[in-house]
Amino acid sequence: MRFVKKVAPWLLPISLLLIWQFFAYFDWISSRVLPAPSDIVTSAIRLVSSGDMFEHIWVSTERALLGLAIGGTIGFIFGILNGVSKVSETIFDSSIQMVRNIPHLALIPLVILWFGIGEQGKIFLIALGVLFPIYLNTFHGIRSVDKQLIEMGKSYGLKKVALFTHIILPGALPSILVGLRYGLGIMWVTLIVAETISAHAGIGYLAMDAREFMQLDVVMLTIILYALLGKLSDWIAKLLEYRFLKWNPSYQK
Rank of each mutant, 00 (worst) to 15 (best):
S95T: 14
V48R: 01
G71R: 07
S50F: 03
V130E: 09
I123S: 06
E241V: 02
L113P: 04
E195F: 09
S50H: 02
S30M: 02
L12C: 09
A201K: 14
V218F: 06
F124I: 04
R46P: 00
G121H: 05
D217G: 03
F76G: 05
T73V: 14
A64M: 08
G116T: 13
S60L: 02
V219K: 07
L47N: 04
G121T: 03
G141F: 02
S94K: 13
L184F: 15
S95F: 11
I112M: 14
L68D: 03
Q252L: 13
K122Q: 08
L125M: 15
I80Q: 09
L66M: 11
S60Y: 07
F3P: 00
I96F: 10
N82F: 04
G230I: 04
P174W: 06
M1T: 12
L128F: 13
F124M: 06
N82E: 09
Q97D: 12
I224W: 07
M1R: 07
N101G: 08
P170S: 08
W114A: 13
L65T: 04
I112A: 14
E55A: 14
A127S: 13
L17H: 06
V99H: 08
T222P: 04
S49V: 01
G116V: 13
F213G: 00
L68V: 15
R243Y: 14
S155R: 02
L105R: 01
V33E: 12
L177D: 06
V219N: 07
G183T: 06
I223F: 08
I126W: 05
L163K: 10
M187T: 15
D39M: 07
W114R: 01
Q120E: 15
S198G: 11
P13N: 05
H104A: 05
W10T: 13
L34Y: 04
F26L: 06
I203Q: 06
S43L: 06
F3G: 00
D217W: 03
S60D: 08
W188I: 02
L131N: 06
S85K: 11
G118T: 10
S155F: 09
A210M: 08
G179N: 09
R100K: 15
E119K: 14
L81T: 02
I19W: 05
V161P: 00
S43A: 14
Q21G: 00
S144D: 08
T61Q: 03
Y226N: 05
L81K: 10
S30R: 09
I77F: 14
L173S: 08
F139I: 02
P13E: 00
G71K: 05
E195R: 01
L239T: 05
F213K: 10
S15A: 15
Y242F: 15
L107S: 05
I203L: 14
E212S: 12
A69K: 03
S30Y: 03
D217H: 02
A207W: 00
W114F: 14
H56W: 11
R243N: 12
A210L: 07
G179S: 09
L206V: 02
I40Y: 06
T165D: 05
E62P: 00
A44Y: 03
M98E: 01
L177Y: 00
R243P: 03
I45H: 00
Y226V: 01
S15P: 00
M1G: 11
R32S: 12
M214K: 07
G185E: 09
L16K: 08
G116C: 11
M214C: 04
F139C: 02
G153A: 09
